[in-house]
Design a protein around this nucleic acid. Structure first.
Length: 426
RNA sequence: GGAGAAUUGGCCGAGUGGCUUAAGGCGCACGCUUGGAAAGCGUGUAUACCUCAAAAGGGUAUCGAGGGUUCGAAUCCCUCAUUCUCCGCCA
């Protein structure tokens, strides 16, 4: 959520930057609208504060009148208070309405794209930030997609998943389950080596948390909701991990705060269909290791690069062909100021699969989180938040299975062997 | 799931309707003192918003959260959250 003060101070710059993303005229108009509402709020508050001040001093007087036995004066003052309060009540309601409108309006405004964000409307307009400069793997004619390999080697049982839960809930078994666990441990160890503190958070969160990281209200339909207890199944570890710092004031010296966590991720994926959802490409439950950083605003873009290098290092160790895209305005997430996507090449499907997304949210999340820090002068400012997947497992597994298939079986990358305990799936 | 107790500032802690503008202490900052330090003494020490060109100043709200009663609420009432104790259930 943007700050109303920022709309005032940077109105023109925000409108210019918004042109890079798919914002509607309604959203542009909303900016001026909100500033006007805020003006109104201020004048109502000024008026109401004066009335309340009057009530306070009259009440104090009544106490003194009673003590002196001056009943008449006390009663007269009571009468007066009643009148003032009636007016104040009206103003108070008006102010609540205005504030609610401002809040609702702010929720409709996406983050302001960074200057590096290319303009464009769809994923085709994303900028190739780093291409794969070696040759793409060519598989034999009879190469199989991962869903066939998974079945052939009894690694993943999609049918059993359907029986137990439903479509999109894969059941991993045998070496498939082992590979999954190996990847989780490998990713966590890599993050640990890079200085991230490991967190194992709750997998369900309350409404406040879902709201603070922005899943509510915009993505309500994408989350599983346990209605009886009003808890939401997390769509990513970002939600519980970032919420650790909700309503907190940090010291400047606390930066950077680096956190990592493995969690299963639950997504309803309402409305998706077609070949994209086949196998592990798009599922309702998958495993992911997330990295999160809280950083000083002056340093957050250096941190973004650092996080990208971390993800890149992992992909290199896994020996997977990858490329990095800088998302265009149209493809940029609602809350992000700048995002880089990592895609891994799936040789059998002959397409690039998104396996990581690394973003700087600047103050967009911290404003709603009320996550601030004190500078040396004791002044409070919003911190910057960043996060990235390092990495999402399902599609990595898909690519590993497909790219590493040989006539003898599926080979396990060197770095993973000490985690899996085997070097070939056959 | 049932019963009881609690929640006050950075921390401890007093406060059962109006001299509370939240006592007192600890901590912290600054000053005095000192060769330097400690002790001692003095001063200051929450947040958000409004007002003001700015600063100073003034105002409003906030005692776990939200409502209510009252001219007036930390204090009385209701709902909720959290913590502790006991009982029940349980990996």
């Amino acid at each position: 959520m943007l700050q109303i003060s920022r709309l005032r101070e940077q109105k023109e710059a925000i409108i210019a930057a918004y042109k890079k993303r798919n914002v509607t005229d309604v959203q542009i108009a909303e900016i001026s609208n909100l500033i006007q509402l805020d003006d109104e709020r201020k004048s109502v508050q000024t008026e109401n504060d004066a009335l309340l001040s009057q009530v306070n001093s009259l009440s104090k007087g009544i106490g003194i009148f009673f003590k002196n036995g001056e009943q008449d004066k006390a009663n007269a003052a009571k009468e007066q208070v009643a009148q003032v309060k009636e007016r104040s009540k009206l103003l108070e309601n008006k102010m609540k309405d205005i504030q609610q409108s401002i809040f609702d309006g702010l929720l409709t405004l996406p983050n302001v794209p960074h200057t590096l964000v290319p303009s464009g409307n769809t994923e085709d307009d994303n900028e190739l930030f780093k291409a794969w400069d070696k040759e793409l793997p060519e598989l034999a004619e009879n190469a199989k997609p991962h869903w066939e390999l998974a079945e052939e080697y009894t690694l993943i049982d999609f049918k059993l998943g359907v029986k137990i839960a439903g479509a999109g809930f894969p059941l991993y078994r045998g070496k498939g389950a082992r590979l999954e666990r190996a990847l989780i441990n490998f990713f966590l160890d890599e993050a640990g080596k890079a200085g991230y503190e490991e967190i194992l958070p709750p997998h369900l969160v309350n409404e406040d948390s879902a709201r603070a990281t922005g899943q509510l209200p915009d993505k309500e339909g994408q989350m599983y909701h346990a209605v009886k207890d009003n808890l939401y199944l997390i769509p990513t570890a970002e939600v519980p991990v970032t919420n650790m710092y909700r309503d907190m004031i940090l010291n400047e010296s606390d930066f950077p705060i680096k956190l990592t966590g493995y969690t299963p991720c639950f997504r309803r994926e309402a409305g998706s269909y077609g070949s994209d959802v086949k196998g592990l490409n798009r599922v309702h439950q998958f495993n992911k290791v997330e990295i999160v950083q809280l950083q000083h605003p002056d340093k957050s873009y250096d941190t973004l690069m650092e996080m990208m290098q971390h993800v890149e290092g992992i992909l290199q160790k896994l020996e997977l062909p990858y490329r990095i895209l800088r998302l265009c305005g149209g493809d940029l997430g609602f809350t992000s100021a700048l995002t880089y996507d990592f895609e891994v090449y799936s040789a059998a499907q002959k397409k690039w699969l998104e396996v990581s997304s690394v973003s700087n949210f600047e103050t967009f999340q911290s404003n709603r989180l009320k996550l601030r820090y004190k500078d040396v002068d004791g002044k409070k400012h919003l911190a910057h938040t960043l996060n990235g997947s390092a990495l999402a497992l399902a599609r990595i597994v898909a690519a590993l299975l497909e790219n590493n298939q040989t006539s003898d079986g599926i080979t396990i990358p060197e770095v993973l062997r000490k985690y899996t305990g085997f070097d070939l799936i056959d």
